[in-house]
């Protein structure tokens, strides 16, 4: 069963960190990913640039609308994500609780939704 762990924290807390504390947090995350990989729980993941780099895209009536900033202004900002393999929600929550920024902000854990298999279009008059 796959789960996504979305990592949120207040960027201002991070901005106020000393160089050393920021370095240590990053190293702790790297070590965490290594541990998760060894145990077969880590499928993918990425840290994100600050929210000020975000751009939001919408398509309405075939028109592409582009705007500066994140989709929603929230107290805590999306800072990264993990794609995890876990047996059930309990295991996923336990893995998420060990993601270092869980101590600073919040981790939202969501099961993935598998999309249905590609539908085969049947064209009249042709062999399937």
């Amino acid at each position: 069963m796959k789960y996504v762990a979305l990592v949120y924290y207040q960027e201002q807390i991070i901005n106020a960190m000393s160089e050393q504390a920021w370095h240590d947090l990053n190293q702790e995350c790297v070590a965490g990913v290594e541990r998760l990989s060894t145990n077969g729980h880590y499928l993918a993941g990425q840290a994100l640039q600050p929210v000020e780099t975000a751009t939001t895209v919408r398509v309405r009536d075939d028109e592409t609308l582009i705007s500066d900033g994140p989709f929603a202004e929230t107290k805590e900002q999306l800072a990264g994500f993990y794609l995890l393999e876990a047996h059930d929600l309990n295991e996923a929550l336990q893995l998420a609780s060990r993601i270092p920024p869980a101590r600073l902000g919040s981790i939202e854990v969501r099961p993935v939704r598998e999309l249905p298999p590609k539908a085969h279009k049947t064209v009249i008059g042709e062999q399937p």
Partner: peptide
């Protein structure tokens, strides 16, 4: 069902 909340008795440690 969708988040796979386990149908299990916790272990002694849990």
């Amino acid at each position: 069902r969708d988040a796979h909340i386990p149908y299990a008795v916790p272990t002694q440690e849990e």
